[in-house]
């Protein structure tokens, strides 16, 4: 995102140019902003407000009390642990995949991209089921795992695996189109000038793709924390042990504890605040400039 000062200057500068039709420009801008806001209001803000309105229905005290429950805290801890494992793995994979796909021409590339896309297309119900088919008692490795006393499904490893499957494509998918668009010229120049591969990546490529990378991380983190369907199948729903935040929200909702359920859900919206902070930080540190 551009710094506000930046784009205001730019707009002012554009507006002062001779021959610019500022009236049309203004109308277009107003139309774009109105459309965006209306669309988002109906689809995104209204549900979000519902969440907060329900969570705060009985006052702030009860809202904050919802977080004192030990099962709720356990759920929050589990969700954070899962995200902490899954997201870094996704980043490494995403960068590797994007590098090989965007920087080189090889046969079967579209096929590979499509394989990376696949987890998005798999219904959450199925993404849980496949791990049951692999590690469940009726599954391929079920008996072996039981003999060796290893729990995968209905335990934390299963939740991590299912989450990894679900969030797998996001970083790669954000980076691939961006890196393709950016081309190889600068990297090739760096290599020709004698820079090493890693150096080229960190000093030439990374600064160019940081926004894509950031969005990828934000998306896969959000998905990792919010995934319900797949995790629900492999979790076993043992209260306080294998319940992630989304599962715990469901439990609270099913108990008619609407305030508690939506209070925990509202915690997840804090992610937006984190996003905001990270983006501001990146902008500030790198002094983002428009081209």
């Amino acid at each position: 995102m551009a710094g506000p000062g930046n784009s205001q200057e730019l707009l002012a500068e554009i507006a002062s140019r001779p021959g610019r039709d500022t009236v049309v420009s203004f109308v277009v801008k107003a139309a774009f902003i109105t459309t965006s806001l209306l669309f988002l209001a109906a689809l995104l803000f209204a549900p979000l407000i519902t969440v907060f309105a329900t969570a705060l229905e009985k006052g702030f005290e009860i809202y904050f009390n919802s977080f004192k429950d030990s099962d709720t805290l356990a759920a929050i801890r589990l969700t954070l642990t899962v995200a902490a494992i899954v997201v870094p793995v996704n980043v490494v994979f995403g960068i590797a995949a994007a590098w090989s796909i965007a920087k080189f021409e090889f046969k079967g590339k579209s096929f590979l991209i499509t394989m990376i896309d696949l987890p998005i297309a798999v219904s959450p119900v199925i993404s849980g089921l496949i791990y049951v088919l692999l590690f469940g008692m009726q599954g391929w490795f079920g008996l072996w795992l039981q003999e060796h006393d290893i729990s995968i499904i209905f335990a934390v490893p299963g939740i991590v695996l299912a989450t990894m499957f679900v969030t797998f494509p996001y970083v790669a998918r954000e980076l691939i189109p961006l890196m393709q668009q950016l081309g190889n010229d600068e990297e090739e120049a760096a290599i020709t000038l004698g820079a090493g591969g890693l150096m080229t990546f960190f000093h030439v490529t990374l600064p160019k793709i940081r926004w894509g990378l950031l969005y990828g991380v934000i998306l896969s983190n959000a998905r990792a924390m919010g995934e319900f369907g797949a995790v629900s199948v492999v979790s076993g729903h043992v209260r306080g042990v294998t319940t992630t935040m989304p599962l715990h929200i469901e439990i609270l909702y099913q108990e008619y504890n609407f305030v508690g359920a939506f209070a925990v859900a509202s915690l997840l919206t804090l992610l937006a605040v984190v996003t905001l902070i990270i983006k501001t930080l990146v902008e500030w540190r790198t002094g983002y400039k428009r081209k």
Binding site: Q146, I153, F154
Partner: peptide, 20 residues
């Protein structure tokens, strides 16, 4: 005593698939 709750059918399935 730990509790797990869910739809009766899917809970039965979890036990079949190894929920201890």
């Amino acid at each position: 005593i730990k509790q797990s709750h869910g739809g009766s059918g899917s809970q039965a399935r979890a036990v079949i698939d190894g929920l201890p």
